[in-house]
Amino acid sequence: MRKRLIYIFLIIASLLFLFPVIWMLVTSLKTSTEAVTSLSFLPSEFRFSNYYTAWISSNFTAQFINSFIVASCVTVLQVVTSAMSGYALARIDFKGKNTLLMVLLATLIIPFQVLAVPVFAILKNIGAVNTYTGLILPSAANAFGIFLFKQFFEKIPRELEEAAFIDGVSRWNVLWKIIVPLSGPPMVTLAIFTFVAEWNDLFKPLILTSSSDMRTVQMGLGVFQEQFMTDYPLLMAAVTFVTIPGIVLFLMAQKRFIQGIAGTGIKG
């Protein structure tokens, strides 16, 4: 009986949680008149053309390309820099290691938003405002990824490397030829995490770009909202195609995604 009540509670709660997303999809297929005049769940006719209209009404093609370039570069760089640092912290004893770990932990607490003005000033000094470099560099490394790799590497038996060292293989080659090929799980987790976070980010591109050529999808969505304030079906269609990459990536790799989050909470 108790079990059944829990199930009923969970199912109702999950429907409530999904409702905004479902209502977004349903609205995106209605006509603008129907959306504001009727509360019927399903559209009287499915207007798939809303997606096309929304796409061409703004510069979404260029914005998708911008977001894709930035998110991909940040992802690749973060995986590489995190794997290297994670390896050093997991395997090599050196002076100042504990201090470094504390500093890295502290950087996790400090929100990027607090550093917006100085980061803008730094990038302005090197002429990187309104460039891909400016959007990519500040996110090219992150303590979260470093800790993720460090934890994973610590679980790999040392014997694997020691044999290679005795054969005279350098640490650099040990990392890339022996350790990294075994590190699929943290790599996939970090890659998906980083890509989705970059794709969804508004604040960073908003402060670091001003020209419309550099607009990312989330900025584009904000501009689209101002232009089509009351045309809810078009707005919902735009939100849908901007949101889909994140949702698809999550559904494709939900296990990794969820393990990644869970791992940081308990062990990180």
Partner: peptide, 17 residues
């Protein structure tokens, strides 16, 4: 997954919805 979907939707997009 149902409870987690809102986390992966962009905050701007979710705000508009």
């Amino acid at each position: 997954s149902a409870f987690f979907v809102p986390v992966v939707v962009s905050t701007v997009g979710a705000g508009i919805v």
